[in-house]
Design a protein around this nucleic acid. Structure first.
Lengths: 244, 244
DNA sequence: ACTCTCTGAACTGTCGACAGTCGGTGGTCG
DNA sequence: CGACCACCGACTGTCGACAGTTCAGAGAGT
């Protein structure tokens, strides 16, 4: 059941219905038009979207593999609920990915990569002045995706892309996400400097700090009503300086 | 088109058809009854399995998310082809995962975990005397899955499970996989010792060496007809001692 | 009033069928 | 003899429908 009326539910047409339905569902879930834990009725969705149940089912399978839905046999698909442990897992896995990506990129870092990443941070700083929070988040994720893209491991990039959906879900959990966007954007400069230094240890420390800040930010924003306390591996970061 | 006649294609029945079809396809692909690159006809599969196309399509979507199939719109599903770059990516991603899992487990390693892992290596040594290569590989993967299970991050475990399918595919690429199973099994003792030491650096070195050996083993087994040469991050391992 | 049972509505899992598209084949033209 | 084009078969994408199951609520019994 939608908690809020789902956004417009535009009649989809032609082919590639699966992808269109998946996009619609992804956006609706991240925007929290479907509350966590609620069941998504196949018939209801197919009626609202004006398509049959087959594309809806396939799209739901896709979202399940991305961690946005879970399917219970004979019960249907449910919007994924994230508790404190889930948040910790997501950011711990992200730490795992980013450490590796930065390590890979550090050894092949060149002027072109430097320029590309710097350009992206400039864009983020520019966006920080505006009020479109969605674009700020996307620009932030795009910086990190650039790192994975240039790191050279396609499967690592795909893994990050998959995790990105859950990351957006995590960020949408709290309202504090959008505070101090300027400082958040500037927080990415040390990552570039660490890459430029070419030193693995320095990259690792910068990544650990950066992700740690983002993790604490989201978890604290959740109100601390999370599951078991679990220290993050690597450097802890408890300041309030950034998000991503 | 099947290169070899697909194994029996047992008539599936009742519910949970998607999972059954997915299991059948997974096994058939890893056993190379479907050659890499071939197109899997939905109608042919549904006829052979005695089910309709809907479960076949959903199962194919599932395998696509696991990297065993790729779908091209209006063309159908194709068995994934792995070149040298793919192998390098898979093992590099595995290195990323295992490093993190061992680091997580090292800080919570206790007597129970020690006993469980040791037990598994004993099992592997026992299986090494037999001739069932499939069970050797599964026991090997099970050791590593145990590590991920005990590491405590469920999403990391799921990520490894997903990658496992591609790992099996990689291992099935060459025949040399099954050589010297006794030494391969024994190669896992240093990992346990590193965990017991509780030292992160020692764990990392042990993992890097272990995975490096496995990677070189598979890539050399492919005949070196791979893509661009790419050095593995971390310790290189060029000996011939192990697989997993 | 509370609990258990039964009934029925709604839904999921699965199926067969239709429409549009892609690739190959045969024929025709230059 | 070679290249282009129309036709045809097969397949994918999508749809509506049926069967078995689950869940909620009404009703009977205690």
């Amino acid at each position: 059941m939608p908690t809020d009326s789902p956004p417009a539910a535009p009649r989809l047409q032609q082919t590639n219905l699966v992808e269109q339905v998946a996009d619609y569902l992804t956006e609706a879930i991240i925007a929290r038009h479907f509350a966590p834990g609620v069941r998504l009725s196949e018939v209801q969705l197919s009626r609202d979207l004006g398509v049959s149940r087959a594309p809806v089912r396939e799209a739901a399978r896709l979202l399940e593999s991305r961690g946005l839905l879970i399917s219970r046999p004979r019960k249907g698909f449910f919007v994924r609920e994230l508790n404190g442990d889930d948040l910790a897992d997501v950011f711990d896995l992200r730490l795992c990915y980013e450490r590796h990506a930065f390590e890979l990129l550090a050894v092949r870092f060149d002027e072109a990569a430097h320029a590309q990443l710097s350009q992206q941070v400039e864009t983020m700083c520019e966006l920080a002045k505006g009020s479109d929070d969605g674009r700020k988040i996307e620009a932030d994720l795009r910086f990190h995706r650039l790192v994975f893209d240039m790191a050279g491991n396609r499967r690592l990039l795909k893994a990050f892309d998959d995790l990105s959906h859950e990351l957006r879900l995590c960020m949408a959990l709290n309202e504090r996400t959008h505070a101090e966007p300027g400082r958040i954007a500037a927080n990415h400069w040390p990552l570039i400097e660490a890459l430029a230094s070419g030193k693995a240890q320095r990259c690792r420390e910068a990544v650990d700090y950066h992700i740690g800040v983002a993790r604490d930010y989201v978890i604290q924003g959740l109100g601390g009503a999370s599951g078991t306390e679990r220290p993050m591996s690597g450097a802890g970061a408890t300041s309030e300086e950034g998000r991503c």
